[in-house]
Each structure stands twice: as structure tokens, then as C-alpha cells.
Design a protein around this nucleic acid. Sequence first.
DNA 1: GCGGAGGTAAGCTATAGGGT
DNA 2: ACCCTATAGCTTACCTCCGC
Length: 193
Amino acid sequence: MTTLLPRTKGEQTHARLRRAAAAEFACRGFHSTKVSDIVKASGLSQPTFYSYFESKEAAYEELVGEFRQRLEALISTLLIKTSLDTGQLVDSVADSFLKFFDFLAQDPDLTQIGFFQPPGCTLTKAGMARWIGNNIAKEQQIGLFRSDVPAPMIGKAFVGMVDQLGRDAVDASGRQANARWCALLLCEGLRLR
DNA sequence: GCGGAGGTAAGCTATAGGGT
DNA sequence: ACCCTATAGCTTACCTCCGC
């Protein structure tokens, strides 16, 4: 992920306000966060805040929107386009889970407001389930996954797993282990073999 | 002088709390 | 239940400062 560094003074101020807003929203939630909290944390004034954002809600939407955009971009890269044997399939699905866990760990404040906290999380998770469901449907069509389980349901189950395991405050190797367990569970189920 | 960036002060709105 | 008042929070008009 390449993030453009702010160059002009205005861009730097915008970035300062965004960082402060993300931290405050993540800490207090949308409704309990006051614009005065954000500007205090950023060392700026309220009018400056309103010269960069139409409203508190607009600032929140900008942050959550950016999170969703990044998430959708990530999901679009995860479509498996060729058939794989069982071992390769588990590896590939584990790699997808890992990319989600790494993504969630990348910017904790943005993740908090975009993925875990209401009101932003509801729409994010619905979208994520839909995008993943679309991927699964295509993968079912090429015979990668069983097609008797509806793709939208698999999408929702995937999101549920990411939602719960993504809350674990673990390091890179912990995320890798979690991703592996998720992939095994999703691809092979609980049944004894 | 001009335009961008940011601040001060004040107005507006919603809400909570107290009195009748 | 209704009204009044105080307060908090959001927004805006207008100003200064600074670099070009």
C-alpha cells in the first residue's frame, strides 16, 4: 500500500485533522466524539476543521469511505482464477485470510471505526460479504468450491471469521496461524476424516 | 496587493434540568 | 405537560498573518 505524503501546508493540515479524527472516533465512537476533541488533539481550531470538512459526519464518512475503498481493492486482488488441488487451495485461502488480518492490523484507528465500530461497521461488513460472495460465486463456477452452499452465505461466514479473529491483538506469526486455522476450517470443515 | 491558511468571536440549534 | 433557562456542541462571518 503506497500512501502519498502530503506536500502543501494545506495537505499537511488535512492529514493532521484526519489522524486526530481517526484517533478520537476510534477511542470514543462517532456520537461521543466532539469536533472540539478533534481540533484539540490536532492543535488546530474549529474553523480550520470546517474549512477541510463539511461537518463532523463528513469527516467520519471520509475515513470510513477510505477504509471501504481499500478493503474493496484488496478483495478484488484475491480472486482465485485457476483450479488447485486441496493442499494448494488451503494455502491460497489461508493467504487470503492473512491479507485481511494484515490489512486490519495496518491502521488500527481506521480499522476500529471502519470495521468494528457502529455505525460504520454495518455497511462495511455487508459490502465485504457481498464482494467476497461474488468472488466465491466465480470460484464455484470454475469448480474450485462446492456449489451446493450459496456463495452469499460463504461470504458472510468468511466475514464472521475475519471479524472475530481480526480482534485478536496478535503479531505477524499469530495472524499467520489464525489465517491457517480459518482456511482449514473453511475448506475442510469440522468433520473427522 | 493577492491568495491561502488559520484564528477569534459570536450565532444557531439541540438538549437537559428545574420550576410551575 | 409545558415553559424557561443554561449549557454543550456545531457552524460561520470576519479578521490577521505570511509567503509570493
